[in-house]
Design a protein around this nucleic acid. Structure first.
Lengths: 168, 168
DNA sequence: ATATACTTTCAATATTTTTTGAAAATTCGA
DNA sequence: TCGAATTTTCAAAAAATATTGAAAGTATAT
């Protein structure tokens, strides 16, 4: 397979993959493009390579920057802005985990905390099932929260080593 | 907070949560409703409690069954079908992991395998960056694949114990 | 065998999400 | 300060996705 074709496939599947995980296709595609580009790109480069409009490109670059996955790069003597993505996949994963934890897991845990204290008699099976379900989700969520914190702080080598050792 | 209100909140946030992870709102809401219902429910129960149409309800129950998260229950002497969700959250998580691994991770790894063998000279930085990126994603993916396999097979107690021990 | 209760399908519709592109805003060199 | 280059915004349009509801299909009791 030729490079150009391989790139296309990579970008397009990365986009499809993203949509299965609640990430918009264009954002995932821009990320994919930057991941496989040796040098920083401009908005115009991305527009051209992905065939998308200026506004779309701009919005999604911005979103990727919010996620901490892409950075602005200033090339001396250039007026235009360039962008580049972190290439170390382990760092990328940690960053995504960190963001999703903050955006989704933590608010969810707060809610479960509140719901756990619902009024009512636990001898009523409706109350009991509700509280038991909420509590067990909360417990799992808290465990995940702790585990992910450790993962976020961990070095790749440490983490991989741990995985190798215990999940062989 | 009253039970009825707590239920509403739980269902609605579970739905919103689902949409962040590529799961359709109604499917997540039906799942939430079944999780907190002590007894099996009929389609009509769900339609009424969630205010959704018959077709929508039916399609999403079916999808939940495909995911292995919901089961049909036959109550003797009853004509109608009843449905119930697995309440053990650890089992639920393992089942979701198992399905997503099969549906998403494995096909992705197959693709990466193919893309890794792109034609071209690795001294060309475009080729090099592409191959390096693909390889490192593949490596991480393979590691995740193995780890998740172990997790799918694991007992809750074993897994939680392991987590406690190593990620305190 | 028929009527009735119940389930499934799917074309049409509604809703949500994404994308466009042109106008406004900003930046920067001269 | 001016003006060209560049970036950002956002209302409108397009596309994707989810939902409805009525008709068709199935199963069961009598």
């Amino acid at each position: 397979m030729k490079l150009i074709e391989a790139k296309q496939q990579f970008i397009s599947s990365w986009g499809a993959f993203g949509t299965h995980w609640g990430i918009n296709r264009t954002m995932a595609q821009i990320h994919a493009l930057l991941l496989i580009s040796p040098d920083p790109l401009t908005q115009d480069d991305m527009m051209e390579q992905l065939n998308i409009s200026r506004g779309n490109t701009n919005m999604n670059i911005r979103e990727l920057i919010n996620w901490g996955l892409v950075e602005r790069v200033l090339l001396s003597g250039e007026r235009k802005e360039y962008f580049t993505a972190e290439k170390d996949i382990w760092k990328v994963v940690r960053q995504i985990v960190k963001e999703r934890k903050k955006r989704e897991l933590e608010p969810m845990l707060q809610l479960l905390d509140k719901l756990e204290n619902v009024e009512g008699d636990k001898r009523d099976k409706h109350v009991k099932t509700f509280v038991d379900t909420v509590s067990s989700i909360k417990k799992l969520g808290q465990q995940a929260d702790k585990t992910l914190d450790t993962m976020i702080k961990a070095e790749e080598s440490w983490f991989l080593g741990m995985m190798m050792k215990f999940f062989k």
